[in-house]
């Protein structure tokens, strides 16, 4: 559709077009406002002094300060941050190393009960986390590994492995089998062909599922809430400390700083690779 630039008069067809354009711009602006403003407000809040954060009517002009970030850093931010980084990166790496070969296997081999296997994996993907998290808490208490970072990292595989297998299988299905066969005629073993030919071909897909997995693992809350004990608490669990209890008030400034520290990496990554992310999400749906 061509771009419509409204003339000054609101008469006739041109006038109607100008009105439509105006209404359209207004609606898009409204949608954008509702989408972006809440986070922007928290972002601004993270640079405000305690007196300014919750003042009503809201203040838009204020003296910025980085105190909130400095205070947050003193309150063991790095402890939570490294737990998040460790658990997220560790689980994503393991998920990819497990999921990519598995999806290749499910794409290329004739195996009995393949449909059932795929269906069970789908079941895990759509199941509520709580039905795994609670029994895992019981088992892990028994083994004494609640609060163990390695154990939490291992559990986090469940978040992404099913998604990776489903998406990558579709990806491998689209790569012609002739490619594998050509490699085998050249004398390469099946595994060698997989590593040197199939994986590079699937690299764009692997990149997409890696980004998706990173986001889902980084944002996770329920498993961390139940299984992280005291020693493996992640950033999302740490955030709720600032909500205050019965006796102490909410510390809005620090809360904002902490919240921004959680979402900033995800938002930056998502804007940098927006195209891939879009493809990944629309793939994840089908």
């Amino acid at each position: 559709m061509q771009q419509l630039r409204g003339p000054t008069g609101f008469t006739g067809v041109a006038g109607r077009r100008a009105m439509v354009t105006g209404a359209h711009t207004l609606l898009v602006a409204l949608a954008l406002f509702v989408t972006v403003f809440p986070l922007l407000w928290v972002f601004l809040g993270s640079f405000k002094l305690p007196a300014d954060v919750m003042r009503l009517p809201p203040v838009l002009v204020f003296t910025p300060t980085i105190d909130n970030y400095l205070i947050v850093l003193r309150e063991r931010f790095t402890f939570f941050f490294w737990n998040s980084v460790f658990v997220t990166c560790g689980s994503v790496i393991m998920t990819i190393m497990l999921g990519v070969p598995a999806s290749y296997g499910l794409s290329r081999f004739r195996i009995p009960l393949k449909k059932t296997i795929m269906l069970l994996i789908l079941g895990v993907r759509f199941a509520p986390y709580i039905i795994f998290a609670l029994p895992l808490f019981l088992v892990m208490s028994e083994l004494g590994v609640v609060g163990n970072r390695n154990a939490l990292t291992f559990v986090y595989i469940i978040i992404n492995l099913p998604v990776v297998i489903w998406l990558m299988r579709a990806f491998f299905d689209d790569i012609p089998v002739e490619l594998d066969e050509a490699a085998e005629i050249d004398g390469a073993s099946r595994f060698r062909a997989f590593l040197t030919i199939l994986v590079p071909c699937a690299a764009p897909g692997i990149a997409t599922v890696t980004i998706l997995s990173f986001i889902f693992a980084w944002n996770e809350y329920l498993f961390a809430l139940i299984l992280s004990g005291r020693d493996a608490q992640t950033l999302t669990v740490g955030l709720t400390r600032f909500l205050g209890g019965m006796e102490d008030a909410i510390r809005w400034g620090q809360l904002s700083a902490w919240a921004i520290a959680i979402v900033a990496p995800v938002i930056i990554v998502s804007l940098l690779v927006n195209r891939q992310l879009r493809r990944g999400f629309s793939g994840a749906a089908s």
Binding site: V28, A31, L32, T35, V36, P38, L39, W41, V42, G45, M54, I215, W218, N219, Y221, T236, L239, T240, L243, I250, W252, L255, A259, I262, V263, V266, I267, S270, L271, N274, L277, R278, F281
Partner: peptide, 25 residues
Amino acid sequence: VVRALLTIPMITTPVVSATMFRVFF
């Protein structure tokens, strides 16, 4: 740019958005 910005809530940590709406809004 607008289309990219419109996808932000989807990747925002749910705990963060819930906290944000509860406390600030």
